[in-house]
Design a protein around this nucleic acid. Structure first.
Lengths: 147, 147
DNA sequence: CTGATATAGTTAGCAAGGCTAATTAAACTT
DNA sequence: AAGTTTAATTAGCCTTGCTAACTATATCAG
């Protein structure tokens, strides 16, 4: 085993914990019946409002062809719709449908409640530690642009 | 917007933070040139030692056929090897090769150092908050079996 | 105003990684 | 010895990532 500094050790544990947390929660999303990439894109549409395909692809950190196909699927499932942009007829405006919005909210509620149930077993102090850590982690990640 | 309780709000922020953290770090892994599922399985082999295909599949939470193909790829890349179990000739013992172990350690070091660099911008207090939160989160997740 | 260039999105085709169903081979049970 | 269970693989499907090439529209240069 290579030696790790104190901070590296923390980094390692943090990474591992994040993986396990998401693995645990992801099971809840599968209940929606919507595949993960689609659910994630739909979430951006619901919370970010209508946007172009390129914007959506950027938000999801995938290439336009990948997003084009995801939107195809969302459309055929009746969860989102495409319309051509009036000002620039090359572009499309993608938006969540009523159905897509409703299903997303249901799924989100399920996921959040599931995770909250776990957190409810902790003490008030422990939950405060998590809240503080979230702040700290976000602060640390925000530095990524200038490093 | 639906109303969320205090705990649900914490759950939501925790989820989102975990997603962003992993997204940030994953870029480092791509440098290894090993595809994510393969890297993850290799990691289990390196840290968990030789094991059967079923054990490895369970550890990675995938079905045996999925793992069988991942092991095929690891073998063809010279990162792991299969041998038949002496005691039970139906079973295989999968282990990381020297090369696989070395590459995994390099990658892990890169990832950990990258994350540690971010954490190093924080104060000692903030890092302690993260350490405490990791403990709390793991405790909360451990309850999942009995709920 | 026209031709060149740039931009938005799609289509085609490939690879990785997930799944179920069916198969093979060995081990266990009765 | 026959039937059942178990470990792994094979076959074949779907989703989701990519690049390269294409279409259609918009913009810019002369």
């Amino acid at each position: 085993m290579a030696k790790l500094t104190e901070i590296e050790n923390l980094a390692d544990r943090l990474h591992s914990t994040a993986i396990h947390l998401l693995r645990l929660v992801r099971v809840q999303d599968s209940v929606t019946g919507i595949a993960p990439a689609r659910l994630s894109a739909l979430s951006v549409l619901v919370f970010g409002g209508p946007m172009s395909l390129n914007q959506l692809a950027q938000a999801e950190q995938v290439r336009p062809p990948t997003m084009s196909r995801i939107v195809d699927a969302l459309e055929s499932e009746g969860l989102a719709r495409r319309t051509t942009d009036k000002r620039d007829r090359r572009a499309v405006v993608i938006e969540a449908t009523e159905k897509g919005t409703a299903i997303l909210w249901q799924g989100r509620k399920r996921r959040v409640k599931f995770l909250a149930k776990h957190l409810s077993h902790l003490s008030e102090v422990e939950r405060q530690q998590i809240a503080d850590a979230i702040q700290a982690i976000q602060k640390a990640m925000a530095k990524s642009k200038r490093d």
